[in-house]
Amino acid sequence: MSPNTRTLLLQLSLFVLTLITTTLAGAEWMFGNSFVLVEKALGWDEFWQGLHFSIPFLFILTVHEFGHYFTAKAHQVEVTLPYYIPLWFGISQSIGTMGAFIRIKSLVRSRLKFFDIGIAGPLAGFVAALGVLWYGFTHLPPPEYIFSIHPEYQQYGLNYPEFVYQNQEGALILGDSLLFYWFKMYVADPALLPHANEIIHYPYILAGYIALFFTSLNLIPIGQLDGGHILYGLIGKKKFDIAAPALFILFAFYSGLGLFRAEEFAIPDESEFYSLLGYLAFYIYFLYVCLRKISDNPRNAWIIALSIVVLQFGVSYIYPTWEGYPGFLPFIFLLGRFLGVYHPETIENEPLSKGRILLGWLAVLVFILCFSPKPFIIIV
């Protein structure tokens, strides 16, 4: 068997596994249950229903990856077919995958090629996500559909939200982006639109929402994310090396805003005070690790980390209701520690055409429309 055949079989196997794991995950979201470790585990009937999530979600993901693939081929850049990454926890809910990627096997020397390859994926995936969301919001089932998922609600009739949400802790709500809000307000039939606590059980809407979420993360103009390729193409390396770390620092500042507040340290319990102080020290070190590669001098990373924390304390004191989204912190760690904040320099730095510049700013608009400041909200 040739190496190319083995690679193709691996890619195909990963796709099939990812189809299975996303179907499992989709069924778990739809029915609010699990296939394992519960008294009434989901079965084959529910598994097949999970295809209503996995097929549209993998469709969007595949369109995104092949947007990169075909553009790279058009530029005669050697790339692989997509590698899908299956991931299913079984004991807790997931989306069944960590995404997919293509490997660029040849050196990209051109700023223009980086731009084209970078922008093709998210724009193609965005169009596919729009189609899935449009279908999901225009084909909502009757309100009674929720009783097939929560039969215990049926005793209250369609007025169930007045009774079941009073003490419902742990419920997951999808935070609005501008585009998702527009779909809910102007596309969906208000009589059929599910309650915010239940929208996760609607597979096409969930698939489209998660696609928008990952599109927005991908379009953050930092490092070698697609957004980084786009911004690098638009403004060049000199300006990018100023903008990218500034945006990364701002992202880190927002994510941890409100995580610690000055009044929390005004507690009489000495052990609790030192425990909180330990958490704060760990948070500062975490920021240092994330920021370490911004500068060759480690001292600068410490200064920036401490400055972020001081500013977060100050803003939280003046505006106590302002809060960031700590859920972004793992992504900040991934960016700062592994993916990198800066973009590799290109040898060929030809200017972009007016059409490409327009597409670049269109991608910025797509990022603004897709980005949710608090994408996943857990009721506590």
Rank of each mutant, 00 (worst) to 15 (best):
Gly170Thr: 08
Pro194Val: 01
Asp189Met: 05
Ala191Met: 08
Leu133Asp: 00
Gly131Pro: 02
Ile173His: 04
Leu123Arg: 06
Ile146Tyr: 02
Ile117Leu: 10
Gly157Cys: 09
Ile104Met: 14
Ile104Thr: 15
Phe114Gln: 12
Tyr135Val: 13
Asn159Asp: 15
Asn197Gln: 14
Ala124Asp: 10
Ile117Phe: 12
Ala124Gln: 06
Tyr135His: 11
Ile199Glu: 00
Ile173Cys: 09
Glu198Thr: 09
Asp189Glu: 11
Ala191Ile: 04
Gly125Ala: 04
Leu130Val: 13
Gly175Tyr: 09
Tyr153Asp: 02
Lys184Phe: 01
Ala188Gln: 01
Glu144Asp: 08
Leu130Lys: 00
Leu112Thr: 15
Leu112Gly: 00
Gly121Phe: 06
Ile173Met: 11
Glu152Trp: 02
Phe126His: 01
Val108Ala: 08
Ile199Val: 04
Ile199Leu: 03
Lys105Gly: 07
Phe126Gln: 02
Phe180Glu: 00
Asn197Arg: 06
Pro142Ala: 13
Lys105Glu: 15
Ile149Lys: 10
Phe137Thr: 10
Trp134Ala: 09
Ala100Cys: 07
Gly157Gln: 09
Arg111Asp: 13
Gly99Leu: 02
Leu130Gln: 05
Phe101Gly: 10
Lys113Cys: 13
Leu123Glu: 06
Ser110Asp: 15
Ala188Ser: 04
Ala100Asn: 01
Tyr153Gly: 04
Asp116Pro: 05
Ala191Ser: 08
Asn159Ile: 09
Arg109Ser: 14
Trp182Thr: 11
Leu179His: 05
Pro151Phe: 04
Asp116His: 08
Phe114Gly: 13
Pro151Asn: 03
Ala100Thr: 01
Asn167Asp: 14
Pro161Met: 11
Gln154Cys: 07
Phe147Ser: 03
Leu174Asp: 08
Gly125Lys: 05
Ile146Asp: 02
Ser110Glu: 14
Asn167Ser: 14
Ile102Met: 06
Phe147Ile: 07
Ile200Met: 10
Val127Met: 04
Gly96Val: 11
Val187Ala: 01
Arg103Pro: 02
Ile199Trp: 00
Arg103Asn: 13
Leu158Trp: 03
Val164Ile: 11
Ile117Trp: 07
Tyr160Leu: 08
Ser148Tyr: 12
Leu179Asp: 04
Phe183Leu: 10
Trp182Pro: 08
Ala188Trp: 00
Ala124Met: 12
Ile200Ala: 11
Phe183Pro: 08
Thr97Gly: 05
Pro142Tyr: 13
Gly175Gln: 10
Pro141Ile: 09
Arg111Cys: 13
Ile173Thr: 13
Trp182Met: 09
Pro190Arg: 06
